[in-house]
């Protein structure tokens, strides 16, 4: 047990946590802006799968990981567009539409990806040390000896925080999720913006899928997200709809995932099946705790979350 808590071990676990948490982070940020706009998207798991497939496929086809990432963005956006059409355009039940999206994405990705299962992508997002920053003790190893996608995700967290809380567009985003009637009366085009954020959120979730298939778990296999999309949805509550907290939550899960492998290799006497349960059990725990905290401190979800808005809807 003694080689467990050495500084090197802890730092390597933390660095692995950031790497492993990045896929969840992208998906969580995607769901976060979707929910901020007042739409619940339970299709993140299906979108991530399509993103993972598109990422691996795009990379195999073109040879470039960046092309793969672009394909993942597009695939995620296309999937989310279905949700936007149904829930924003046609005001369908958001819960059921999201579930349908997950079922559809699972099936479609398995069908379309049948020929590239297990095929290693010719390129992937590899570690890039950032000059100087990577030299910082401890922090440099954790944050600045990572892949380009990790840097993109960190930049995105900062950007989204600024965007949501400090810009006019962000104010409109928050308004359509809190009180669409008020935003509408002030001349904000609620339906158009909601659809836009659902699609953008989907694109980010798709990129989250590519962070797996071109990053931590290179290549495509059926169902490879293994519930990470759902964990991302749960994390939005933990994050209290704040991108900075989303990053903290995602790295926590990355840590659970990374720690689980390290415990296994360190020869801990626990069945791997039980170790694999940890992220899921941990999600439930986090969800229960953050729901309680949210209720206690009255930091709620966007008030109009899940509520369709139609201006002339009467009776």
């Amino acid at each position: 047990m003694s080689d467990f808590l050495t500084p090197t071990f802890v730092i390597s676990v933390l660095a692995a946590a950031v790497a492993a948490g990045t896929a969840i982070l992208f998906a969580c940020l995607g769901e976060l802006i979707t929910e901020r706009a007042g739409v619940l998207n339970l299709g993140i798991e299906g979108i991530m799968l399509m993103g993972a497939l598109a990422g691996a496929g795009g990379c195999i086809w073109s040879g470039s990981a960046w092309v793969g990432a672009g394909a993942a963005l597009l695939a995620g956006a296309a999937m989310a567009a279905i949700h936007a059409l149904l829930c924003v355009g046609l005001r369908a039940n958001q819960v059921v539409s999201g579930l349908a999206l997950t079922i559809f994405g699972t099936g479609l990705s398995a069908f379309l990806g049948r020929d590239i299962v297990g095929m290693p992508p010719p390129s992937s997002f590899r570690r890039i040390d950032i000059p100087f920053l990577a030299e910082i003790p401890i922090l440099g190893r954790i944050l600045f000896q990572q892949s380009a996608l990790v840097y993109v995700s960190i930049a995105l967290v900062v950007f989204l925080w600024w965007y949501i809380f400090r810009t006019r567009a962000g104010l409109r985003l928050r308004a359509i999720g809190e009180r669409p009637e008020a935003a509408d009366a002030m001349g904000v085009d609620v339906a158009r913006l909601r659809a836009l954020y659902v699609v953008m959120g989907g694109a980010l979730a798709g990129l989250g899928g590519a962070a797996l298939s071109l990053g931590t778990n290179p290549g495509w296999t059926e169902g490879m997200t293994a519930g990470r999309g759902w964990i991302a949805v749960a994390l939005v509550i933990f994050a209290a709809w704040n991108p900075a907290r989303a990053a903290a939550g995602a790295y926590l899960f990355g840590g659970v995932e990374a720690g689980q492998f390290r415990l296994q290799t360190a020869g801990v006497d626990l069945s791997p099946f039980f170790l694999s349960m940890l992220p899921y059990l941990f999600t439930i725990l986090v969800l229960v705790l953050s729901t309680r905290e949210a209720t206690r401190r009255a930091l709620g979800a966007p008030a109009a979350l899940g509520r369709a808005y139609m201006r002339e809807d009467r009776g």
Partner: peptide, 23 residues
């Protein structure tokens, strides 16, 4: 030799069209 995943794919699609149609 086609993947059985065609079935869930179609199931998801049926649900989409039903949701849209219900409107």
């Amino acid at each position: 030799g086609l993947p059985a995943a065609i079935a869930p794919m179609l199931q998801g699609a049926i649900l989409f069209f039903l949701l849209g149609g219900e409107v």
